[in-house]
């Protein structure tokens, strides 16, 4: 068995990164929880690129829209909690990546795409969603990010 060794600093850095990303997701979720009638409608309708019609169709179907709203509000909150606590971290990572992938695909920073929702930076093909997506993938692939987590306790005790 190959054992990988990390310095304390490396482990803390990965831990902090995980908690910060978790914080970001958690607050995105909570902000929606506390916004009366929050809806993804406008965001979905503003979609551009290859999948724009798919996202628009989601928005226009009331039942689907309700599901999308629910998944965003509670999904973001739960993923955030998972990453902050390090509880079922892998599921959290996968959830986070799915969210980020969908956000990226619905609003790809294409050459000539212009969004109604103004972005806070300038992007071409690569945006912060994509970078965050890869960051989460890196965290998932470096288990040291779980050194400080409920998972490490849980899965140790269960054995």
């Amino acid at each position: 068995m190959q054992s990988i060794h990390y310095s304390k600093l490396q482990r803390y850095a990965l831990f902090i990164l995980r908690v910060l990303i978790g914080w970001y997701f958690l607050y995105e979720g909570l902000a929606k929880v506390f916004t009366p009638n929050w809806s993804a409608f406008g965001y979905l309708m503003d979609s551009k690129g290859l999948f724009a019609s798919f996202f628009a169709r989601l928005a226009e179907n009331p039942a689907w829209l309700e599901a999308v709203n629910w998944i965003n509000i509670w999904g973001l909150t739960i993923v955030g909690l998972m990453l902050v606590l390090g509880l079922f971290t892998n599921i959290g990572y996968i959830g986070a990546m799915i969210f980020l992938l969908l956000y990226y695909l619905s609003h790809p920073p294409l050459l000539f795409a212009e969004y109604i929702l103004p972005s806070e930076g300038s992007y071409l093909w690569v945006d912060k969603n994509l970078i965050l997506l890869v960051t989460v993938a890196v965290l998932m692939l470096f288990p040291a990010s779980r050194a400080i987590s409920f998972d490490s306790l849980l899965f140790r005790k269960s054995r």
């Binding site: 831990f15 908690v19 978790g22 914080w23 958690l26 607050y27 909570l30 909690l81 902050v84 606590l85 390090g86 050194a147 400080i148 987590s149 409920f150 490490s152 306790l153 140790r156």
Partner: peptide, 15 residues
């Protein structure tokens, strides 16, 4: 390890 696992709990308090 148990203590360490809970290091991030105060983060929730801050949130």
């Amino acid at each position: 390890d148990a203590l360490k696992a809970m290091v991030s709990v105060p983060v929730l308090g801050a949130m």
